[in-house]
Simulated assay, not measured.
Amino acid sequence: MDAEEARRRTNENLKGPAIEKYVKHIDARIKDAVNDGKGSIHNPQVGDPKEGTGESFYLKPDEERAVRLHYENDKYIWTDHPDPDPGSPVSNAYTTLSW
Rank of each mutant, 00 (worst) to 15 (best):
V23L: 01
N11Y: 15
Y71L: 04
V90G: 00
V67R: 05
D36H: 01
Q45W: 00
N13M: 12
N35A: 15
A28Y: 03
H42C: 01
L14K: 09
G37S: 07
V46F: 04
Y71V: 09
G52E: 02
D36K: 10
S56C: 00
W99H: 01
G52D: 03
V67P: 08
I19K: 07
T95N: 06
V67Y: 04
R68N: 07
D74G: 02
A28D: 12
P61E: 11
E63P: 05
W99V: 03
P82K: 10
D2C: 11
G39W: 05
P44Q: 07
D74R: 12
E51R: 10
M1W: 13
A33V: 03
E4V: 14
D74C: 00
Y58A: 08
N73Q: 13
V34E: 13
L14Q: 08
A28C: 00
G47Q: 03
A6V: 12
V90L: 06
R7H: 04
P82W: 02
A28S: 14
S40V: 03
Y76S: 02
T79P: 00
E5Y: 06
H42E: 06
E20G: 03
H42A: 07
V23G: 06
L97Q: 05
Y94N: 08
P89L: 00
Y76N: 06
E5D: 14
D74P: 01
V23P: 07
R68Q: 15
A66D: 10
S88L: 09
S98W: 04
E20H: 07
H42S: 08
E5L: 15
G54Q: 03
E5M: 14
E12Q: 14
R29K: 15
K50G: 12
R7T: 10
P84V: 13
G47F: 02
N92C: 11
Y22H: 09
V46I: 15
L14C: 11
L14A: 10
E72C: 01
K50P: 02
K75A: 11
